[in-house]
Design a protein around this nucleic acid. Structure first.
Length: 575
RNA sequence: GGGCGUGUAGCAUAGCCUGGAUAAUGCACUGGCCUCCUAAGCCAGGGACCGCGGGUUCGAAUCCUGCCGCGCCCGCCA
């Protein structure tokens, strides 16, 4: 209820100064009510007792009296138990909704544009994407959409794992499989684990692999060609998954480790220049204040290994330099699992100490909790427990299809396929985006593929029902935007209250990088609509009421559709 | 041992940043609602020492502190 607070604040300001309360004493007290049955906005007056030496009740009464009729047309005010309660006036709600109705942006303001790099998805070459990649991909994509909508230029970066020691064995394995085979025929589901198994069992293969790493790092053309074949094969797979999921990432956004390979020596040089680099057991490292290992000894960030190879941290530092020098960004979001919190904290600290980033650069790790197996442990591809992402997506669409076939037998085959995809993929994404990303969650098919309750299909259903109203009467939705909104029924008012909170929920979701704050509000709107729809007839209503309700429906549908779109979820017109 | 995160009805979660009133939502459970715009829905109901103990405060799920449980991380993997 940001708008109502803004409307009340100046009125309250003059009263407060009249009765002798300084702004600093009440400014933070005025806020949304904890319980909407009491009010929309409340001012608890208890803490003012100290200043005014009066009972909270008396103070609230006094303020109420002094406000007089100034709040007329904005809200109703009452005083209970030392609380001053403000309930939005339906006429005021109408004014706000009327603004939204004619606004393509639904009152969502744009911010001072920034260039924001978002690092997300990051699958590994030569491996299938699995459920572990789901969160980064879905959350990162939602942040991409939300921040773009707020007016920023988002630069997505997909840091695929395409370089490093494992590629020696992967390339040798590729050679063993026969070079004549087409890249498309490489089976990613077993490729990596087969190579790994051979590496562990066959010492000859292992030494060939190590030699191959050296040839790769020296950019030997033949080796690079084989490497490229693995990358290309993997990209076909990644893009298939992205397309199926409706993820915005494309090959233009690739920023694999290989991209920074040539920049790594420069990182070492620059760190040495500023005197941060030290040697420890043959490795080049940076020590940071306050970081200790298990034995209580100083814990360094390793920049260059004893064997001369580089680390993850080094390419992250190279990447930071690149973003500042070439991308021209000062805002970096890393949508990466919470288990890497320490890594990023150390990398950022080194980058600051070394002068790579000044104080004005916002490098933010946006962590998310782990996907757990039913055994209560992290779900990892290594242990073989991880479900392939593609399989999960296909299963989701199939299950959705079975339900659509049952509930909407009238849809054509093509339309049904389209709708099933929107519902199935939407359900998967929403399951991830509707809760606080910091929480771990246990992977369970049933839960992730539920279509009842607080799920994407519930929101999509509300949207589809509205579209159905419009198609029933062949109403031009553009013309509806000139209609006057009149709120009389309590459920119309409740819906209005939910709708006007949309912009602030998006802002809150953006500033905290928490898509669930938007998802929660969209669910509130869909619920309010469900209640409204049940008792407020639209098409059979008397003329001005009908037009008003059609406008309310149009606004609800556009809000749901826009909000879902910002989460990366489609809104079918029929389902 | 240290660090980060987390603990809210049987289950899954929101609320915690920025303290406020009777702790909100979904699943599951009980009962009701399709001759009327999509019942994937709506209405009503039961179900909570908000992990435990201290502290701050007129007031704590929320802030501080100490425990406990769970998860993750803690030098050459990414």
């Amino acid at each position: 209820m940001r708008d109502l607070v803004d409307a009340i604040r100046p009125l309250l300001g003059s009263v407060m100064s009249e009765i002798g309360v300084q702004e600093s004493d009440w400014n933070n007290l005025l806020a949304g009510s904890t319980d909407s049955t009491f009010a929309d906005v409340a001012l608890p007056c208890h803490s003012l007792s100290k200043v005014l030496r009066k009972a909270p009740n008396t103070i609230a009464d006094e303020i109420l009296e002094n406000l007089g009729s100034t709040t007329e047309g904005i809200c109703q005010v009452s005083s209970i138990n030392g609380f001053l309660n403000f309930s939005a006036d339906p006429n005021w709600l109408c004014e706000i909704l009327q603004e939204s109705l004619i606004d393509d942006r639904l009152r969502v303001l744009t911010e001072e544009p920034r260039v924001i790099v978002i690092d997300y998805s990051s699958p590994n070459v030569a491996k299938h994407m699995h459920v572990g990649h789901l969160r980064s991909t879905v959350i990162g994509d939602a942040l991409n959409r939300m921040l773009s909508h707020k007016g920023h230029r988002v630069v997505p970066e997909n840091h695929i794992g395409d370089w490093g020691t494992p590629f020696g064995m992967l390339i040798e394995h590729l050679i063993d499989l026969g070079l004549d085979s087409e890249a498309q025929h490489i089976d990613l589901s077993t490729f990596y684990s087969d190579a790994r198994a051979k590496f562990d069992a066959d010492s000859d293969f292992a030494s060939r692999s190590r030699a191959r790493v050296v040839r790769m790092q020296s950019s030997e053309p033949e080796t690079i060609e084989l490497w490229q074949m693995l990358v290309d094969r993997s990209l076909i797979h990644f893009n298939e998954v992205y397309q199926r999921m409706g993820i915005l990432l494309s090959n233009n956004d690739l920023a694999g480790e290989s991209k920074y390979e040539s920049a790594l020596p420069r990182v070492v040089e620059k760190l040495a220049e500023v005197g941060l680099l030290e040697e420890s057991d043959g490795a080049k490292v940076v020590y940071l204040d306050g970081w200790k290992n298990r034995e209580g000894e100083p814990l360094p960030l390793i920049i260059q290994k004893a064997d001369g190879g580089y680390n993850y941290a080094t390419s992250d530092l190279a990447c930071i330099l690149d973003r500042i020098e070439n991308v021209g960004s000062r805002d970096f979001l890393y949508v990466v699992g919470a288990e890497q919190a320490q890594h990023f904290a150390m990398v950022f600290e080194v980058a600051r100490n070394a002068g790579f980033m000044d104080e004005g650069v916002n490098a933010i790790h946006v962590p998310f909790g782990l996907v757990m197996g039913t055994d209560g442990k992290k779900l990892a591809s290594r242990t073989g427990g991880a479900v392939h992402l593609n399989d999960l997506l296909i299963e989701a669409v199939e299950r959705a299809d079975a339900i659509v076939a049952e509930k909407s037998p009238n849809l054509s085959k093509d339309e049904r396929a389209e709708v099933s995809k929107m519902l199935g993929i939407g359900a998967i994404k929403y399951a991830d985006l509707s809760t606080d990303r910091n929480n771990n969650y246990t992977f369970e098919w049933e839960k992730m593929l539920s279509f009842d309750g607080n799920t994407a299909p519930y929101l999509q259903y509300a949207h589809a029902r509205i579209c159905s109203i419009f198609s029933k009467d062949e109403i031009d939705r553009d013309l509806i935007r000139d209609s006057e909104i009149i709120l009389t029924h309590e459920r119309e008012i409740a819906l209005a209250r939910a709708l006007i909170r949309f912009p602030e929920s998006l802002d809150s979701a953006c500033s905290s990088h928490s898509p669930h704050k938007l998802a929660t509000q969209l669910h509130n709107i869909a619920q309010a609509f469900g209640s409204f729809y049940e008792v407020c007839t639209v098409l059979n209503a008397e003329n001005s009421t009908k037009l008003s309700r059609l406008a309310l429906c149009d606004l609800t549908a556009r809000t749901l559709q826009t909000g879902l779109d910002l989460l990366g979820i489609d809104s079918p017109h029929r389902m």
